[in-house]
Write a protein that binds this DNA or RNA. Structure first.
Lengths: 254, 254
DNA sequence: ATCATAGTCGTCTTCCTGACGATAAACACG
DNA sequence: CGTGTTTATCGTCAGGAAGACGACTATGAT
């Protein structure tokens, strides 16, 4: 074991980067901001920033999320007394390859946020500096063109986005996390469209309905109904207390 | 968005900590080392150390793992041509509460390593400075006594261990990761005892046998047999190419 | 020879899923 | 005002997987 001498450590910068996902018009979208400075000037990037001196990692991520979107983070470890519109926020992974930032050694603790559909993004300064981009578009781009393409995300953000999307895709299988994409009250059909958008598949409405309404604690009827999707009025639900789905919702093969 | 000025970042130290898990005599155990210096002098802690200047996070974790155990890390992203005794190594989570190290701001990128049963740990220097400790023991301790108990793990390592164990417990459900606890060739019964030790349950040998031998790509028979567990000779298997178990192995309730 | 131990093959019931028919309740439009 | 369209919801049926458990097999120990 090397001697643990805290005065002789290599200096690192620590940042948080955010993969903020939402579902907009049947597509899974993520928030990207345009970089104003070098490196990667003019390229799109995930929102993020430095962790402050006295700030925990999750707090830094929540602060960045609020700055970029106005969303209040919903701490999953809290008892969650208010079913507000706060977004789900969790740590994703940490990226620290030595050359990931050409200027210096930067370790980025990526976080994943899931939010209901939001109005237009709140640009930090100028008008077109932030947007919701369909993740398929961004990921296809990263696969087709290289990471040097001017349309590709800056730094290793395509990898971070890919990891975040994969986390979301797998986590809605066995948890009730998909409700984080929905408003406080939602219908079974709206929840189904979330699954369809995140997985990029279409699901049988009848089997889906049977599954989610038959899982105890997943959905709680509010008593109200809505016709905002057209067609026959649908029951409104809130997310129930259950966080784990057992047995899980099965993602179709293919 | 705050201006991204790399010369004005708050300085952090970045370390890796390791949750090394193995199964020894029917119990899930983790490697702990005794701290030689303050803070927490004399207390047990997870092995770990500083990330070097030009070193990736995973490389730092692999280096620490080799230093502490002699294990070669088995990069899960590599095509894995050699079914060697290398341990499985993956990033777990990152811990960076401002006061987690009283001396300075330290962000620790915890990694999870799964290894087959090893001989006695290789102490870095003196004889009794490292040991395999049953995780139940360590976690019960953390729950019963506070973190100030002299038997409790140093820093926030009880939390890190708890997260690592939970990751391992859930991941063997839907992946073939349990084979990382086994030697290169193993029997169905040995694999079952791994599940039983990690989950702390007992499983029906017949149903378990049906499940693992019936999942395509999970196990590959080597042709050999062994009687090292006593009783009727058992077929030997190697881990197959499949990494995802679908449908998953179900962890019993209760 | 007998027993204990561990492995392996079957059977049966129950639960869950996927496929899909049928009905219900709204709205749009001629 | 009927008719078609859309979405929601209930029901049925066959196939697959899992839990419970019986039965048989091949070793070593006594």
């Amino acid at each position: 074991m090397p001697p643990y001498d805290p005065s002789a450590f290599p200096p690192f910068a620590v940042t948080v980067d955010l993969v903020v996902l939402t579902v907009r018009s049947h597509a899974l979208c993520t928030l990207v901001v345009r970089r104003g400075e070098a490196p990667f000037q003019g390229r799109w990037a995930l929102p993020g920033g430095f962790v402050r001196d006295d700030e925990d990692l999750g707090a830094a991520a929540a602060r960045e999320l609020a700055e970029e979107t106005g969303l209040r983070a919903h701490d999953p470890s809290a008892p969650a007394p208010v079913p507000d519109n706060g977004a789900h926020l969790e740590q994703l992974a940490t990226y620290g390859a030595p050359e990931r930032d050409p200027r210096m050694r930067v370790v980025s603790v990526a976080h994943l946020a899931l939010a209901p559909d939001l109005p237009a993004p709140r640009p930090g300064g100028d008008a077109n500096s932030a947007r919701w981009a369909p993740v398929e578009e961004l990921l296809d781009q990263a696969r087709a063109a290289g990471s040097d393409s001017p349309d590709a995300l800056a730094f290793d953000h395509a990898q971070i986005l890919s990891d975040g999307v994969e986390r979301a895709r797998s986590k809605i299988e066995y948890s009730s996390l998909a409700t984080a994409f929905c408003p406080a009250e939602f219908t079974v059909g709206e929840l189904r469209r979330v699954y369809e958008a995140v997985w990029g598949v279409s699901l049988d409405p009848r089997n889906f309905h049977r599954k989610v309404t038959g899982t105890p604690g997943f959905l709680v009827p509010t008593g109200g109904t809505t016709t905002r999707q057209g067609g026959r009025p649908a029951q409104l639900f809130r997310a129930g207390g259950a966080t784990l789905l057992n047995p899980p919702m099965l993602r179709p093969e293919v």
